[in-house]
Nucleic acid binder design. Structure first.
Lengths: 167, 167
DNA sequence: TATTGTTATACTCTATAACTATA
DNA sequence: TATAGTTATAGAGTATAACAATA
């Protein structure tokens, strides 16, 4: 059973958002060179990766999955389309902007995945493949949990009254 | 034993950097209103939080712990000093810029912690306090693991030759 | 000579609001 | 009227290089 060793964590290390940020930072640094070498930004890469899994996706779904705000996504679509990595897909709802990978986009995606594979295996070996799975499960479960938490009424937080405008 | 339920994860959800980003995003959104209401940015908050744990810290340590680049930290020091939340600490090594919380800074920190406490408890209840601990341990362990991984020679990655300049 | 931090600069992302087009 | 996406804009973060001061 992959239980992590219970070292005493410092108070600073117990902040969830900070722990997530710091861990992401070092992890990303590990894989970023592979993205950089193909002249992709991290948000662009997240879009390619999301599209590699599904046939085609609309802007709203991509924005949510890739944690990119709509205005940024518009720019990213422009860039990736100009490079011939994605292409628009006709959609019955003309409001929706659906896109998919082109063959070139898919090829680039698979190239990056292949190149970074050894680094990923090295990480899995050093940390433990099973613990890595546990971590991924916990991360995705936590995300689900938080998303299901009711958005609180700001008016109930005295400290937030000034933001909520006392309504 | 807090083992997460082994749901089948989609390929996209198995990307560690993306999972970390998405989970941080929803988690941060939960606590961000408390930071916002005191006119603090997230990086500023991370600095206050780090200083609340240690007596005084220098810029280099803060940059590493708070995942802030030195140029940004310089600006953050200016802002927090102007607001009277931090103050410089004389240091034997005149190159080092050491700072600590002022009493006002400490008071603000504790105010924010108190205000966000109910939300944190709500999260711990919904997700499971023990699983949350496990997650924090795994995150900090993974960070240590990655940081101990040798920086690879870019020249060994064929894909990175162009970046490394073939040296 | 190496280290710490600041300045300068360019670029990207973040965030909000206002607007257009479609349903 | 509500929704999807774009445009506009201001602000903050990201990243590098060049520089100053100190060790």
């Amino acid at each position: 059973m992959p239980t992590s060793c219970r070292k005493a964590l410092r108070k600073f290390e117990k902040s969830l958002p900070i722990a997530l940020l710091r861990t992401r930072e070092v992890t990303m640094r590990l894989f970023k060179p592979f993205i950089d070498s193909h002249d992709l930004t991290m948000p662009q890469w997240r879009v390619l990766r999301a599209l590699a899994e599904d046939e085609a996706l609309d802007a709203k779904t991509l924005a949510e999955r890739c944690v990119i705000l709509p205005p940024s996504l518009t720019r990213i679509f422009r860039g990736l389309t100009q490079r011939g990595l994605i292409e628009p897909v006709p959609c019955t709802d003309a409001r929706r902007h659906m896109v998919r990978l082109t063959p070139e986009g898919l090829a680039l995606f698979e190239e990056v995945v292949q190149e970074s594979e050894p680094t990923y295996r090295q990480l899995a070996d050093a940390f433990g493949a099973e613990r890595l799975d546990t971590l991924l499960d916990l991360l995705n479960d936590l995300r689900d949990t938080v998303q299901r938490m009711p958005d609180e009424d700001p008016a109930e937080h005295p400290a937030l009254r000034k933001v909520a405008g006392m309504r």
